[in-house]
Amino acid sequence: SDEELKKRIEELVRRGNKDEARKLAENANSDEARKWWEKLEQL
């Protein structure tokens, strides 16, 4: 689900694993996940 995906992306970003988070968001084929990633990346 998008919610689970967003949690995983956020967790990866928090751990400093941005590349992994980006790949996850891009491969998810989910606009919501991509937007979430872009938002987190700004922080």
Rank of each mutant, 00 (worst) to 15 (best):
K18E: 07
R22N: 03
E3M: 12
E11L: 00
L24Y: 00
S30M: 04
L5Q: 02
L5N: 02
I9E: 01
E11M: 01
E26N: 04
S30P: 03
L12G: 03
D19G: 07
W37T: 00
L24A: 04
R22D: 03
L40W: 07
E11T: 01
E41I: 15
Q42K: 13
E26L: 03
G16H: 05
D31C: 10
L43K: 07
K23W: 05
S30E: 04
D19L: 05
S1T: 12
D2P: 08
K6H: 08
K35D: 15
W37Y: 14
E3G: 10
R14F: 00
K7A: 13
W36M: 06
K6Q: 06
R8Q: 11
R14T: 09
E4L: 11
Q42G: 12
A25H: 02
A21P: 01
K39M: 13
L12Y: 00
E4G: 08
S1I: 14
K6L: 14
E26V: 05
K23T: 10
R15I: 14
E11G: 06
G16V: 02
R14W: 00
R15E: 12
E10K: 05
L43W: 08
I9G: 01
D2W: 15
G16R: 01
L40N: 01
W36P: 01
I9K: 01
E32W: 09
K35C: 12
A28C: 13
R34T: 11
K39F: 13
R22P: 02
V13R: 02
R8S: 06
A28N: 05
K7G: 06
A33S: 06
R14I: 11
A28W: 12
V13L: 14
R34C: 10
D19Q: 09
A28F: 15
V13I: 14
W37S: 00
S1V: 14
E32N: 07
A21Y: 00
R22T: 04
E32D: 11
E32H: 05
N29D: 13
L5E: 02
D19V: 10
E20H: 04
L5F: 07
L12C: 09
K39I: 14
V13H: 11
L12W: 00
N27V: 09
L5P: 01
R8W: 09
K7H: 07
R34G: 07
W37L: 15
K18I: 15
A21T: 01
R8K: 12
K23L: 12
K35H: 13
K7W: 03
E10R: 05
S1M: 15
A21K: 01
N17M: 15
K23S: 10
R22Y: 03
N29I: 10
K6I: 15
L40H: 03
N29T: 11
D31Y: 00
E3N: 10
L43A: 11
I9C: 04
L40D: 02
A21M: 04
E11A: 05
R14A: 13
L43D: 11
A25F: 04
Q42F: 09
N29V: 09
L5D: 02
S1K: 12
K35Q: 13
L12Q: 05
N27W: 05
E38G: 00
K39W: 15
R14G: 07
D2L: 15
N17E: 13
D31W: 00
L43I: 12
R14S: 11
R14V: 08
N27E: 14
D31T: 08
E26K: 03
R14Q: 11
E32Q: 08
N29Y: 08
D31Q: 06
N27A: 13
V13D: 03
E4I: 08
K6M: 14
D31N: 06
N17T: 03
K39L: 14
W37V: 12
I9M: 11
R15Y: 01
E10S: 04
S1H: 12
R15K: 13
E3C: 13
K18P: 10
E41P: 01
S1R: 12
D19K: 08
R8P: 01
R22G: 03
N27C: 11
W37C: 08
L12H: 05
K39Y: 15
K39Q: 14
R34F: 14
A25N: 02
D2H: 11
G16K: 01
E38N: 00
R15T: 14
L24K: 03
A25L: 14
Q42Y: 06
E11S: 06
K39V: 13
L24N: 01
K18V: 15
R14H: 13
E38T: 00
A25C: 14
L40F: 12
D31S: 09
E10F: 01
E32C: 08
S30C: 08
N29E: 12
D2F: 15
W36G: 04
L40I: 10
